[in-house]
Amino acid sequence: MASFECDQAEGLRRLLAGPRPRIVTFLSAALPSEKSAMLVNLGASLAESGREVALLDACLSEFGIARRMGVDLRATLLDVSRQQRALDQVLHTMPQGFHLVSLAAGSRGALSCDADQLRRLSNTFNVLAVQSDVVIADAELDDSDDLPLAAMGEGDIVIQVTPAADSIKKAYALIKRLHMRLGCRPFGVLVTGADEQEADMVYRNLAQVASRYLAVRLFSVGSIPNDEQLVRAARLGRAVVDAFPRAGAALAFRRLAERFATPDAAMGVGI
C-alpha cells in the first residue's frame, strides 16, 4: 500500500513543478438536487477538457454530493490524515470522469479534531489539491460560520443561486455570514436555472446589495440555463456534456469549465 509519506512527497514534487492548483469551494442557495446536478456536470465538463478533477464532499449532512450520488465513501481524507488509508484508496473514479472523495464520514462531530489532527487533515487536503488540476469542494458553513478547513477560505468561494426569491435571500445570507467570518474579500456568483438575461439581473441585484450594505465585491462566474436535457442526462446516469453535447446546458457548462480551468482567470482570490 502506498504510504501517506509517499503521497506527501509526490504532492510536493507537483507543487514545485507546476502552477498552483485550483481549489473552488461551492456553497449553495439552491435545492440539494440542483446543487448536485451542477457539481456533477461541472466536474464532468472539467474532466472532458482533460483536467484531473477531484470532487470533494466536505458536507457532514445528508445533502453532500456523495450521498446525493448514492456513493458510500466510508474511507475518507480524515482516515488518510490518520495514516489509516493511502490517498489513492479514498479516490473513487466516477463514470463521469472525475474522482469523488469525502472529507470525513458521519456527523459534524467527526471533524471535532484537536489542533494537531486538524493540521494533519489540512496537510492531507493540500496533498489532494497538488495532485489534482482542480479541486471542487461541496461545502457547508457550520454553526460558527466556519468552512470545514481554513484552506477553503483562502481559495475561491462561489455561491450558487437560482432566480427563486428564497434562493436569492439565502444567497445573501450566506454572503453576509462569509463576510462576518472572512472579512472584505470577493465571492463568485453562479446563477443556475436561468437564461442569461435573468441570470444577469439576479447577479446585479445581489452585487448591488452586497456592495451597499456589506462593502463586499461579487463576481459573476456565469450561468446555467434551465434545460430539460439536464434532467434527461441525470436519469441516464450521465453528464449532459456526454449525453447531449449540443444542449444549451452542455455549452454553458463547457464555458464554465473553461473559466475554472484557466489558471490566470480574473475572479476572487484564486480565480
Rank of each mutant, 00 (worst) to 15 (best):
S144A: 12
V71N: 04
G64T: 05
G64Y: 09
A54R: 15
H92W: 12
G50S: 03
S36Q: 13
S61T: 09
R67F: 03
F98Q: 03
C59M: 05
S122I: 02
G97P: 15
Q131D: 04
G70N: 03
N126D: 03
A75V: 06
A104I: 13
R74I: 04
D114K: 15
L42T: 02
S112T: 07
L39F: 10
P95S: 14
N126G: 10
L118Q: 13
L46I: 06
V130E: 08
D138H: 01
F125E: 02
V127F: 00
S36I: 14
S112N: 08
L118F: 08
P32I: 15
S102M: 02
T76M: 09
L87K: 01
G70C: 01
S144F: 09
T76V: 13
R85K: 15
V80N: 00
S81D: 03
A150C: 13
G97M: 14
M69Y: 06
Q84T: 08
L141V: 01
A110L: 02
L56K: 05
Q96R: 06
D79V: 08
A129F: 11
E140I: 14
S49R: 13
G50D: 04
L60F: 00
T124K: 09
F98H: 04
D79E: 02
D146M: 10
S49P: 07
L87T: 02
H92T: 11
G50Q: 07
Q96H: 09
R108Y: 04
A54G: 10
A150Q: 15
A44C: 08
S102G: 12
D138F: 00
S144G: 09
I136S: 07
S33W: 04
L118S: 12
A105I: 14
Q83W: 11
L31S: 12
E52G: 07
A115L: 07
A66R: 09
V80Q: 00
V53A: 06
P32T: 15
F125W: 07
L121C: 08
N123R: 00
V134H: 01
A75P: 02
D79T: 08
Q84L: 14
S107P: 13
R85N: 10
S81L: 05
A47I: 14
V130F: 09
L147Q: 06
V71T: 07
L31V: 09
A139S: 11
D72M: 01
R120Q: 10
I136R: 11
G50W: 08
M69I: 01
L46H: 05
S132M: 11
V53L: 05
L100R: 00
E48I: 08
A66W: 12
E140M: 13
L118A: 11
V134T: 09
S107H: 14
R108Q: 10
A86M: 04
R67H: 07
G106F: 12
C59A: 02
E48D: 10
A115D: 08
N123Q: 01
G70P: 04
L56T: 02
A129V: 09
N123K: 00
A30W: 03
